[in-house]
């Protein structure tokens, strides 16, 4: 068994939460102290059992008025797959023009998400 400490990020109250976890193959929460609401508890469960994250990065643009376009996931991905998703993002090259929301990559590393542009890029003059 191990103990993990969290600061809850669900609301600005930022409650400190201490969790005791059974360290079997799939973690089971045995005890939570500190969370003052149901949402906080749900969040801790999610954080321990299957933490999900959004990530942001950049992709190379050719023929645009800038050399990089910022991108992000439009749905959260499992924390453990971030590096794999990054590997795929690094391979992407897009051709200008680009609009906010344009999909530059679908289902990277098998994740249920799209990588979308977060800035628009005009064609180079």
């Amino acid at each position: 068994m191990s103990t993990k400490e969290f600061t809850c990020v669900v609301c600005p109250n930022g409650c400190p939460i201490v969790v005791n976890i059974d360290d079997d193959e799939t973690p089971v929460i045995t005890h939570i102290e500190g969370s003052t609401c149901k949402k906080g508890e749900e969040w801790v469960h999610q954080e321990i059992e299957n933490p999900m994250r959004t990530i942001s990065s950049s992709v190379v643009v050719t023929g645009g008025d800038c050399i990089l376009a910022s991108v992000r996931t439009n749905r959260p991905i499992p924390l453990g797959r971030i590096m794999k998703v990054m590997e795929e993002i690094k391979q992407v090259t897009v051709i200008a023009p680009l609009a906010i929301g344009d999909v530059v990559l679908r289902n990277p590393a098998g994740c249920d998400t799209e990588i979308v542009a977060t800035r628009s890029v005009a064609k180079a003059q």
Partner: peptide
């Protein structure tokens, strides 16, 4: 570079 350079298409 962070990424290999794309340059102008």
């Amino acid at each position: 570079n962070v990424r290999p350079e794309g340059g102008q298409a």
